[in-house]
Simulated assay, not measured.
Amino acid sequence: MSKPVSEHYAALGLKSDATLADIKKAFRQKASQFHPDRNLDEDAPARFRAAQEAYDVLSDPDKRQAYDDNRRRSLLDDPADTAREIWHHYFQPFLKH
């Protein structure tokens, strides 16, 4: 099984059609929320770094295009893993009720 691609859009709470303004706004919110100096939760530093990495990729048009291309390729390369991930993240919570 291949290593999953980091989900930069999810790190910022965005959909893949987000504008640059959306990306900047979401980054500022996440950076403020998870900055280690302000948030003492154990996972705050990792979530802060994930937001920084997501912003670095998604705010650069060339890096974003390469990232989006890789996401599409990953979806097509391993559809069974993609289907399992979609099921787990999107549908499973509805079945628990």
Score class of each variant (00 low, 15 high):
53 E>N: 13
85 E>F: 06
9 Y>Q: 03
93 P>G: 02
70 N>V: 09
81 D>L: 08
8 H>V: 09
2 S>P: 15
72 R>K: 14
49 R>T: 10
79 P>I: 06
28 R>C: 05
18 A>G: 04
51 A>F: 00
15 K>D: 11
81 D>A: 12
67 Y>T: 02
68 D>P: 02
34 F>E: 01
58 L>E: 01
86 I>A: 04
92 Q>L: 12
25 K>P: 00
3 K>F: 11
20 L>A: 12
50 A>E: 01
25 K>L: 10
84 R>C: 03
47 R>Q: 08
16 S>G: 12
65 Q>C: 06
40 L>V: 13
17 D>T: 10
36 P>S: 08
13 G>W: 10
28 R>K: 13
35 H>E: 07
16 S>R: 15
66 A>I: 07
85 E>T: 09
84 R>G: 00
75 L>P: 02
84 R>Q: 11
45 P>E: 01
71 R>V: 11
66 A>C: 04
22 D>R: 07
82 T>C: 08
10 A>Q: 15
44 A>V: 05
12 L>C: 03
33 Q>F: 13
15 K>E: 11
1 M>G: 13
68 D>Y: 03
42 E>I: 15
15 K>F: 10
14 L>D: 02
29 Q>N: 14
80 A>T: 11
3 K>W: 12
44 A>L: 07
48 F>K: 02
55 Y>R: 07
4 P>H: 09
9 Y>K: 04
78 D>I: 04
40 L>Y: 14
10 A>S: 14
26 A>E: 05
96 K>T: 07
76 L>G: 01
17 D>G: 08
88 H>R: 13
10 A>W: 11
2 S>D: 15
96 K>C: 01
50 A>V: 04
52 Q>V: 03
35 H>R: 10
16 S>P: 11
93 P>T: 04
47 R>H: 05
81 D>I: 03
94 F>G: 05
23 I>K: 02
24 K>P: 00
16 S>N: 13
94 F>D: 03
75 L>R: 10
5 V>C: 06
79 P>H: 07
94 F>P: 01
29 Q>L: 15
75 L>S: 06
10 A>T: 14
42 E>T: 15
42 E>S: 13
59 S>E: 11
26 A>P: 00
73 R>W: 07
61 P>I: 05
26 A>Y: 03
73 R>I: 05
96 K>V: 08
2 S>G: 13
32 S>E: 15
85 E>N: 10
57 V>Y: 00
43 D>Y: 12
36 P>D: 03
58 L>S: 01
78 D>S: 03
89 H>V: 09
50 A>N: 05
39 N>P: 08
21 A>M: 08
41 D>Q: 15
14 L>V: 08
88 H>F: 08
41 D>S: 14
1 M>C: 09
89 H>K: 14
81 D>P: 01
68 D>L: 03
62 D>G: 06
52 Q>L: 09
58 L>R: 04
75 L>T: 04
11 A>P: 06
73 R>G: 03
90 Y>N: 05
63 K>W: 02
95 L>R: 12
2 S>K: 15
4 P>V: 09
97 H>K: 15
3 K>V: 13
85 E>C: 04
31 A>T: 02
85 E>Q: 12
54 A>V: 01
61 P>F: 06
67 Y>V: 03
89 H>E: 11
27 F>T: 00
6 S>D: 14
75 L>N: 03
45 P>T: 04
42 E>D: 14
11 A>S: 15
71 R>E: 06
11 A>I: 09
12 L>F: 03
20 L>N: 11
78 D>Y: 04
63 K>N: 00
